[in-house]
Structures are given as structure tokens and as C-alpha cells.
Design a protein around this nucleic acid. Structure first.
Lengths: 125, 125
DNA sequence: GTTTCATTCAACCCAAAGGTTGAACAACAC
DNA sequence: GTGTTGTTCAACCTTTGGGTTGAATGAAAC
């Protein structure tokens, strides 16, 4: 049986994926790299040239982005071509969109309760 | 002069805010806390009861969420009432929405270039 | 008053992040 | 072949994260 068949591990995998994506996005250097890649694919060298980091440092950041699925690296001769994978970003966005919508609805509903004179303001049981 | 008047520090502040939000979201315990708070405000105690963490541990997580602006804590007698602040989430969502849209457009455009027979596939200068 | 309850603070521990260097390696140039 | 270039790997260092405990605070209950 594949791991993806087990609902528990599946859920765990989704959680892990979100951890990876949000963690990848929590660093400004990595966001800068993503921004740069939005203008087209580039090599690791080109990517690190303008950054105040060592070559190996950038390579590590790319590893983080790659593990999150946000970027792919592909060998072309002796250099590696990095490109964006917007699909992964969409996962984070979906999480956020669901939650902002859900929360806003909930809180609006609670606000309405207050206005109609209900004495409880959305406290949990 | 206030810090918010200086464009450089302003930009730095925005970056820091994104760091804080994405970092806050990168932990499953914290996402669980947010999920719980979506059903209504609660005290720190109620929040930590179901979690496999010490009280102080949860308090620390709440500190992270608070620093990111996602949650507010307010004293009510001897307990603290925590509630969600969806506005902060919106900041992260805006970043993601802008970038997914931008990237998708860029990449679609590059794909179209390829189909029309252009020989370069979006490589940077 | 004293005690109890909800929370935080301070100190600590260990693991992970973010950075550095220098060696290793594979591909290109000569 | 030799040398150079692009990239990673391994080892290290320092800071931050996530967790624990036990003391400290402050409000409530008695």
C-alpha cells in the first residue's frame, strides 16, 4: 500500500507540504529569488550574482524552494537552470483563501449576532 | 521623523511583516490554533487543553501569532482572551495572489512565445 | 488575609536555519 | 591532457525555534 492511500499519512503529507511552502516563503532572500525567477528561468550563478551571499548559500536557499516544490532545477551542461513552479504557490494560496473567507464569514456572522442583541459574542462552548 | 516616513525602512517593515506572517503559518500547531480560533474567541487555557504541549509552549506560539498580527490577546480578569485578526492574513494572501497571478501570466506569455515559434523560452537576459 | 487558578517569564536544552569556508566533481575551453 | 568554471557537498559556527521546567505575577475564591 502506497503512503498516499492512508488518510492519516495523507493528511500529514499535506500538513508537511504547507509547512515547507510557508517556511520557504518566510525568508526575504527566497522571496527575492522567486521574484527574480518570475522574469524567466536563470542559472544558479546568475541568481546569486546580485545577492550578498555566497554561492553555496544561494544553493541552499534553492534547496529549500525546491523541497517546497516552488522551484525546479535542471542540469544543462555544467550549469543548473532554475525555474518557477506556480502550481505549488497555488496550494498555499488555496489554504489562505479558504481560511480568510471562512474566518471572515464566521466573524461577520458573530458581529451580526451582537447587533441583533444576542448577549454572547462568539465565545466557544 | 517617524520610521513610516522613510521609504527604505517602510519597505523593510513590509518585508519583516511578511516574514512574520509566513513564519507564523509555517508551523502546524499554530495553524491548528488559528483553526480553533476561527470558531470563536477562547482563553489560552482552553486553547492549550487539547494540545500535546505545555501551557507555556502554547503561550509562546500565541506570541508568534500575535507578533504576526494574526491574533490578539486581551486580559479578562485573570485569563487572556485570544481572538483572530483576519486582516493580517489578508496581507499574506495579497502577496500570494499578486505573485501567482503575475507568474502565471508571465509563464503563459512565455509559453505562447514558444508556440509561435520563438526560439527562446523565456530565458533572462 | 490565604489559597488557588490562569498566565507569563526566565532559564535552560536540543534541533534546525542561515550563513560561512574549502574540498570535490563534472563539463567546458584550451 | 591541463586548467577553468558552475555547482554542490561537508564541515563548521552562531542564531533562532520549539520545547521543557519552575518561579513569579495577578485576579478570584474562600
Amino acid at each position: 500500500m502506497n503512503n498516499t492511500d492512508n488518510p492519516a499519512t495523507l493528511n500529514h503529507m499535506v500538513e508537511q507540504h504547507l509547512n515547507d511552502i510557508f517556511h520557504a516563503l518566510s525568508n526575504p532572500t527566497r522571496r527575492a529569488i522567486l521574484g527574480r525567477l518570475a522574469s524567466g528561468k536563470t542559472t544558479v550563478g546568475d541568481l546569486s550574482r546580485p545577492l550578498p551571499l555566497s554561492f553555496a548559500g544561494v544553493s541552499k536557499h534553492l534547496g529549500v524552494l525546491e523541497r517546497a516544490g516552488l522551484v525546479t532545477r535542471e542540469a544543462r551542461g555544467r550549469e543548473r537552470v532554475c525555474r518557477l513552479n506556480p502550481a505549488a504557490l497555488r496550494d498555499a494560496q488555496d489554504w489562505l483563501e479558504f481560511h480568510t473567507r471562512f474566518w471572515t464569514e464566521r466573524l461577520d456572522a458573530l458581529g451580526a449576532l451582537v447587533e441583533t442583541g444576542a448577549d454572547e459574542e462568539g465565545e466557544q462552548r
